[in-house]
Amino acid sequence: MGAVAGLFLLTGAALAADPPYGFGQPATPGEIAGANIDILPDGTGLPPGQGSVGQGAALYASTCAACHGERGEKPLDATMRLVGGAGTLATPKAVQTVGSYWPYATTLFDYIRRAMPFPAPRSLSPDQVYAVTAYVLRLNGVVPDGTVLDAASLPRVRMPNRDGFISAYKPGR
């Protein structure tokens, strides 16, 4: 009797852990590696590589400036502005840019890598993404000249508006 109950419990436990329908296929390591591009604020997900403010300046001029403006302040469209707006968030004419508004530098790397440059997303190498990230942060005065960013240093960059966000999400409401 005890043995039967034990067998039943084992089977029950095994069933609970099994997929209910058995649909789909196990994801392959290559499939995950190719798609797993998100970066957390602590730097989880950042790839190997590095890029400097200087390298970023050259790349920005050739790849980004046409839309975002030479120094990121005079873009084609106001929503594309990258630079400026410090101290304006609590004024009637807030200017929300990477420097004035974005809470995490890692988000800048993440977004450039997944979505930029606009005509050719996913075309930049990790080194190039680090470099453009460094240059946009430099334009905003967040990092000094000569900064080199990599997986260790990027998460340590503290954005001016780091503490400016409050979560409105309340479970169940």
């Binding site: 604020p41 609590a90 508004y101 974005w102 995490y104 988000t107 993440d110 977004y111």
Partner: peptide
């Protein structure tokens, strides 16, 4: 903390903080 839940789709309040 993606771009579309930080830079965009957040609500800047009068005191300068954002929802």
């Amino acid at each position: 903390e993606t771009r579309d839940e930080t830079a965009k789709y957040t609500d800047l309040m009068p005191d300068g903080t954002a929802l």
